[in-house]
Design a protein around this nucleic acid. Structure first.
Lengths: 227, 227, 227, 227
DNA sequence: CATGAATGAGTATTCATTCAT
DNA sequence: TATGAATGAATACTCATTCAT
């Protein structure tokens, strides 16, 4: 009908943002290209003017997200002259920051409907996360702050435990419960890495900082897909 | 053409078994009802005589599988008079046994194609696995063999670490590497639960028993889905 | 709506007949699957129950037609003990018979819209027609009734001339003009093959037989495609 | 981006040339307007500044080509005072010249993809070619060099035979085979027209001239269309 | 002359489900 | 119990054409 022309990059971003929201709400497979163009308010053809296919768009979204994480991790870790403990802190901070920054997407990943993204992303993140953590652990062992004979499996356990714990729905926990969770996480981490108790005292402060602004009243209903 | 009549339950089982195999090979979403009836060798209509819908069938399969696991866990744990350590062993044995018993399905879960089942199942398993492990840990603390202030998070970490480690493709590891992995797993477990070193020495034997028959030369090609 | 069930072969034939008509009227590329199922009066899915794709259907139609021609030619020629001249007559008769039998399809081939079929068919027919005619000519030379140093090119010329002449729209010619055309064709043929004048006197009778029943009033309008 | 302004006729010609090449390579129907503007290196809208539609462009191209042929034929024939035999030679030479000049387009016509153009063109060429040849033949009969009672059908046969023979892929024939083909063509032509043997001796020289530069090693790959 | 974002009707194909026999 | 022909809604993708700038 009325023809609104936008700059290429703007429109492209618009498609991406709208699609993220729809994929999040209904799941990739149950979001049709029609849904997307309707939501953007443009004709069908325009979608294919910007993206080769629906799957291409998903790739773009996933890749962007993965790349953000990879970059954040690399930033935290690859700096010379940092101690292993500081690196671990930076890593946690980074993961926290990423999570907070893209809370929508984290939420998204917990949606059973988004299987696709979830697993694909998880696998790809693990591919560079595991070696990174493993290397930090080795460094920590060399520095005498960690003590383990199995850096690789310690890395896996560290990450696995962290993921399982972070599966807890933060938004359902009270402040006090969150503090307890962090304390537990700190203790378990120290044990797994063979670090002295108190090594990760800083966790408490980190999380407090990040959680500022979130309350347990944050609840949203998860709409069922139409189909 | 030729009309073979079977008893209700037999035919139903046949559908289920064939479908498991097909879902496994091609993924649920890319297995059509036509594929199923072709494989069973009956007419299309018969499928709907036995199952309300394709999704119903998936539910049946998933539920059966989950229930098997739940039952195995319950069997291991709910017996009176067992020590926490023995229960942990039984649990690991059970999970091992389940894995071995349904190696196909485990493999299945690692297949990125079967995201759906994976996540749905994972969540549902966690729902009764976490409280079970948590309860054992509490028991262990009472018995003085475990030492942790956070049984709930210890349970989460224990399970999460275990899952991350079991993600390693066993079939790519040599005997020696598997032994090392188990040693690592044992040590990490003991630390997370605050158990004395050696508490889970039995792990080594357990795994050796289960792995009997598997060698690192066990490789299978992963059939690509047609579609 | 109302569900009318037919036997597999009947319905299949129905699809083929209806499609032939539509392809003929609108051209293959401008006939949609929707057109076909509408004309047959069934639901869209049924088309794909019988044919893998629209193109498959075209192949079926073309192949059937080609095969009919091939068979007719083979029947006329492959019999032992026939003289070259008789074989030529049988061949002409066969081609005449085919043409008369499937006047619709011949007409069809003259439609510029049916490029696809036309050329594909022409090429495939030539592939077995040329060697067949060439062989008969060689036989005729051996028998002393034909005289040419170039059987291959005589075959090509014979066929090419025949096709060009048959391009004349018979339905626009009067009886007398047809007789003249056949006389011309006979004379030219005899010359090309180096046969004595009168060798193919039989042509006159053949054609008269075949044309019985056709009048110059046979006209049909050729509907333009919608698109 | 950079805006290059050309004179109307130049740009138009550019579109035509580029389109010829693309139609030739991929076929009219599988060449999109996007392909064309991309190849020319201009924006999409410009296409519609110069041509009403894609089909209009095809018409322009076809008409140009047909007109070139018509002109060549008219040039060869319409001159007063030439004998029928000379006219026939000029005609052959013209067709040869046209073929050589637009070898790409001839090749193009043999491509099954370009059915459309092929048939449309063929029909339109026949429309003025047949009467032209027929007239020459009549002239030849009057001059006593040809002898036939059926100038119209002789013309059809002459053209049809010529087309069938020229269907032979020259590039697969050796020099010697080409010479034989021409000899065959000459003989057949003389017979069809009722001309004395040797009347068209000149054919040999004509073809030799035209074929200069072509060898049987001239092979080109036939690019598959992407689609 | 030239740009390129926007339009939208059109099309083949899939597949879970129904139902008369 | 069993058959298999029939349904029809759903969906991704194409591409000639338009038009505001």
């Amino acid at each position: 009908m009325s023809r609104v022309t936008k700059k290429r990059e703007d429109r492209r971003e618009e498609f991406i943002e709208v699609s993220k929201r729809l994929f999040n709400k209904k799941g990739y497979e149950y979001t049709t290209v029609d849904d997307i163009v309707d939501a953007v308010g443009v004709a069908k053809g325009l979608f294919y003017y910007y993206f080769e296919s629906k799957e291409t768009l998903l790739d773009v979204i996933t890749n962007t997200f993965i790349e953000e994480i990879r970059q954040a991790i690399a930033d935290a870790i690859s700096r010379e002259g940092l101690s292993a403990i500081v690196k671990m802190e930076l890593l946690l901070e980074a993961s926290g920051a990423i999570k907070m920054k893209s809370m929508a997407l984290v939420e998204y990943f917990h949606e059973p409907r988004n299987k696709h993204l979830h697993l694909a992303a998880e696998e790809r993140v693990m591919k560079f996360l595991v070696p990174s953590v493993e290397e930090i652990i080795r460094q920590g062992v060399r520095e005498g702050v960690f003590d383990t004979k199995y850096p690789h499996y310690a890395a896996l356990a560290y990450i696995g435990a962290g993921m399982a714990i972070s599966h807890e729905r933060f938004d359902r926990l009270s402040r006090k419960e969150i503090v307890e969770m962090v304390a537990a996480y700190q203790t378990l981490t120290e044990k797994m890495l063979g670090a002295r108790p108190g090594t990760f005292d800083i966790y408490q402060r980190l999380v407090k900082k990040n959680l500022a602004g979130f309350t347990s009243s944050d609840r949203r209903s998860s709409g069922r897909p139409k189909r």
